[in-house]
């Protein structure tokens, strides 16, 4: 049913749970497993330094995250194809899903306050709305 599965991993606890679920599903369906980590760059920066520093910081965060995730997948006999893409989480992941013809997107649930959700909305909500494929939210 699912041939190409994508797990969105920002290094959070929710993403870790989503990764474990994605590995189980990928094994069951003998699917290709991809992982995307988005280097979130600031919108409308005032200096290049802001962009450079944010990108460097995100790179440092994602190095160990990718290593752990790859080891976890390998332990289950799966090959994890990892992608680090600069941009903003929702459009970047949605574009990636469309471009790579992903069947299933697996994301972790990230709880925010009611006020935050009302004002800004969660990344998970917006991915469910915008991603052009089935989306599984792991809580």
């Amino acid at each position: 049913m699912f041939r190409r599965i994508l797990i969105a991993n920002d290094g959070s606890e929710g993403a870790q749970r989503a990764l474990s679920a994605a590995i189980r599903i990928a094994k069951r369906f003998e699917a290709e497993l991809h992982m995307i980590s988005v280097e979130e760059l600031p919108r409308f920066p005032a200096s290049i330094d802001e962009v450079v520093e944010e990108k460097t910081a995100e790179n440092h965060i994602f190095g160990p995250v990718i290593a752990r995730a790859s080891a976890q997948a390998q332990a289950e006999g799966l090959k994890l194809v990892t992608h680090v893409v600069p941009g903003h989480a929702v459009p970047t992941i949605s574009d990636f899903v469309a471009g790579e013809r992903i069947d299933l997107l697996v994301v972790g649930f990230m709880g925010h306050s009611a006020l935050y959700n009302r004002l800004i909305g969660s990344t998970t909500d917006r991915l469910v709305e915008h991603a052009p494929c089935a989306v599984l939210v792991i809580k």
Binding site: P42, F44, P45
Partner: peptide, 11 residues
């Protein structure tokens, strides 16, 4: 705020 909304801290 800039961290939460991923917008430039300067702006």
């Amino acid at each position: 705020i800039s961290i939460r909304i991923a917008m430039s801290v300067a702006l």
